[in-house]
Design a binder for these strands. Structure first.
Length: 493
DNA sequence: CGACGGGACGC
DNA sequence: CGACGGGACGC
């Protein structure tokens, strides 16, 4: 009965004997002499690691040796070391030194490879959001001399965006690191800094319509005016460059999700503070924030006498959910391109004793007689056992499981009519403990949650199935096993 | 200057 | 019913 995972890695090369581009940069190109044989090369290079193929190139017609050779290693680190140690050396009694370099990949005919001569020392890594540069460095320092580590951060908030770069002094060290580092960091070869804009802009443009303009929360329940869809274009945002949330794929290793943090502190969760370039007009800003359904007021502060913008505004929504969503989608959004908005929850205005449910704010679920706690701050929307945004009775915040944890149970989640923001999902699912990750499929109303404990997963089903989160009803059930394996029977009708 | 072959049937 | 994700750097 036990599980035998004995699926032979059959398939192998797509066509031909050896897949020369797998793993990337595991093949070297050698300029040698016409007298060198493949046996010479094998002897000279085999001690760098497993060799899959040695090929001395010959002229098709004359069969004459052309003085070049390819060697495919099993590992990129072997190829890297071969380059570093054999370039310029003499081999097999020939007087001319050989040249050794990483071979161009066979596909992508020309220079499409991100391999200029400087490359192959830098890795792109997924970096937990609570990591510092030093934390990241420690994950790699055993593999070789590190030249630099860079965690990419939000410019306004300085928040770790969840990924970074590690640059080694030697290519072989980078390769060794790539092959042996913590798999959760998902290291891959970094592209050179040059080629980045195209893909980025394309992805952001697509994301603008798919995520900013929601088929998502709140539009069914609020007055969503289709004309607002054009707002970004009307106000001159033709080229969105960066949309937060699109890259917000990585969860903070954080006991409480952003929703809880933001709302548990002392501010009104339906009211946002926005920092924006003074050149942006009140009307432009209003159009932008009105894309999120439920905006009630956009109050750009201006100099009383001159009318010039003071560079900040308050935006109020008619529900907590809308405000959360607006903050999630627009904080860091480049508007105008090149200048990122800063969107936070607004502090309570002085003198306003915001006690409980502000009049006019129709929170999806209201705090239930929880008042006494917040005498200090006038905290009105404690998101804990009272459950201001979900009908479920949530346990106290609990830490996430380590992302390397083995998956003990996977849940299938359906949200109707649409998924709540990811932050909210993370919060509610994490409350049951041992949550590894939860995500929704892009553009869809279903998703999955992975737990490191079966008990926690079962508790999440028990606690969340049939409940609402920010107005969205959840179905939470055990997921079928991932579809990848065990479906290769006979394809009969 | 110095860049892309060979071999192949198994449910 | 609804079934399998996610990644790029301030010139």
């Amino acid at each position: 009965m036990a599980t035998n995972h004995q699926q032979a890695m059959d398939s192998g090369p797509i066509s031909g004997r050896v897949d020369v581009d797998n793993p990337p940069f595991s093949r070297i190109f050698i300029v040698c002499s016409k007298r060198h044989t493949s046996e010479d090369m094998k002897i000279a290079f085999e001690h760098f690691g497993g060799i899959e193929d040695v090929w001395v190139v010959k002229d098709k017609l004359t069969k004459e040796n052309r003085g070049v050779c390819y060697i495919k290693f099993t590992k990129a680190s072997s190829a890297a070391r071969a380059c570093e140690e054999m370039d310029g050396k003499v081999v097999g009694g020939d007087s001319k030194p050989i040249k050794v370099m990483i071979a161009q990949s066979k596909v992508s005919g020309s220079k499409t490879d991100f391999q200029d001569d400087t490359a192959l020392t830098r890795l792109f890594v997924i970096c937990p959001k609570d990591y510092s540069e030093d934390n990241l460095r420690q994950k790699f320092q055993d593999f070789g001399e590190i030249e630099s580590v860079q965690i990419v951060r939000d410019h306004a908030t300085h928040e770790n965006k969840g990924y970074g770069y590690v640059k080694f002094r030697k290519s072989s060290a980078a390769a060794i690191a790539l092959e042996n580092c913590d798999k959760a960091l998902k290291a891959v070869w970094a592209e050179p800094k040059s080629a980045k804009i195209a893909r980025n802009a394309a992805a952001a443009a697509a994301a603008l319509h798919s995520t900013l303009i929601p088929h998502n929360p709140f539009l069914e329940t609020n007055n969503f005016v289709p004309s607002a869809v054009q707002a970004p274009m009307n106000v001159g945002m033709n080229v969105p460059v960066s949309i937060p949330g699109v890259v917000d794929f990585y969860s903070a290793q954080n006991p409480t999700a952003a929703v809880a943090e933001s709302i548990t502190t002392s501010h009104t969760p339906t009211r946002l503070f926005v920092k924006v370039l003074p050149s942006v007009t009140a009307e432009q800003l209003s159009r932008l924030f009105d894309i999120i359904p439920g905006m009630q007021m956009c109050d750009l502060k201006r100099n009383f006498s001159t009318g010039e913008s003071k560079g900040f505004a308050y935006v109020t929504y008619n529900s907590v959910g809308s405000a959360i969503y607006a903050k999630e989608k627009l904080n860091g959004f480049e508007y105008p391109p090149g200048s990122k908005l800063v969107v936070k929850y607004a502090e309570d205005p002085p003198g306003v004793r915001s006690n409980g449910i502000g009049q006019g704010t129709e929170a999806p679920f209201q705090v239930q007689s929880y008042g006494s706690k917040s005498s200090l701050t006038g905290n009105s929307y404690a998101v804990d056992s009272a459950g201001v945004y979900t009908s479920a009775a949530l346990p106290a915040p609990a830490p996430l499981a380590d992302m390397n944890s083995e998956v003990a149970s996977r849940l299938f989640i359906v949200c109707q009519p649409a998924p709540p923001p990811e932050t909210a999902l993370k919060d509610v699912f994490s409350r049951f403990g041992n949550l590894i990750d939860v995500w929704m499929m892009k553009e869809r109303n279903f998703g999955y949650a992975k737990f490191a404990s079966k008990e926690s997963a079962d508790a999440a089903i028990e606690g969340l199935h049939g409940h609402e989160v920010l107005g969205m009803r959840l179905k939470v059930m055990h997921a079928d096993p991932p579809k990848s394996e065990a479906s290769r029977k006979r394809p009969r009708t």
